[in-house]
Design a protein around this nucleic acid. Structure first.
Lengths: 128, 128
DNA sequence: TCAACTGTATCAGTGTATTAGTACAGTATG
DNA sequence: CATACTGTACTAATACACTGATACAGTTGA
């Protein structure tokens, strides 16, 4: 699990960390119960303040991506068992609307938009 | 073309305007060469500052959604003729990756994610 | 030309986001 | 208990985002 961060990217540091962890989990590069580097360790590696890493971890926990054991470290959460599918759909729908609007606005065909999403899904799934 | 805006939504006013215009264009509720309300008119209707509307319009023009005639008003642009498809795909790919990562993270199946996007696409296309 | 409209530029004020410094609290382990 | 680790809370400095008041510049049409 190597993370990197670009302070002059415009994107906040904690969001960069969140995105990379989410991507790793989505791509199964991080599996349930895998340990994440500690707040201080990662902060030292990235040469940033521990609070910035902590903020990313807190957001990831709020999103159900990781679970943190106070004093014990942070671990990848195992799926979202208690989450109903309707709730998952409710969370994802805004993203779906977003890409639909942007894609139609660009005058792309629905098939082309769907193909693009499928490509990205395969890039994550690897073996579908 | 009725726009509404919620000052306490957390989302900046100019982004709310941009989203609604983009949605209307994507859904063909606004067609090429349709006139948009003037900066001052819309600002008065929404009870906000003309500058805020102007900022939304400027961003929309930068994105190729509308075209503004200095002193003459703003109009919906006609597609993006000069834009290569590879460029359109380049613009849309980050959104595709975003929904792929979020969806997989939620432990949804690729088919379910694609279905959701397709639903939103149909919601835009079928509005005639 | 004049009046009324269009969008634009400039400046200022308020609030919040972002990051960091520092101190605190819980847990593992010897 | 003691030490060294874990995450957390509080505070503050800085920068920037957002909105608005106001003045400017170009276009339209009588």
């Amino acid at each position: 699990m190597i993370l990197h961060v670009n302070p002059s990217s415009g994107l906040p540091l904690y969001l960069q960390i969140e995105a990379q962890v989410k991507q790793a989990v989505a791509a199964a590069a991080l599996k349930a119960d895998d340990a994440l580097p500690s707040v201080r360790k990662l902060a030292a590696d990235l040469r940033i303040n521990p609070n910035t890493v902590a903020r990313a971890y807190q957001n990831l926990e709020r999103d159900g991506v990781i679970r943190t054991v106070p004093g014990g470290g942070c671990y990848v959460a195992d799926g979202m068992p208690g989450l109903l599918k309707t709730e998952k759909v409710r969370r994802l729908r805004p993203h779906a609307q977003q890409i639909a609007v942007e894609g139609m606005q660009l005058r792309l065909l629905p098939e082309e938009i769907l193909k693009l999403v499928q490509e990205e899904l395969e890039k994550l799934g690897g073996k579908s």
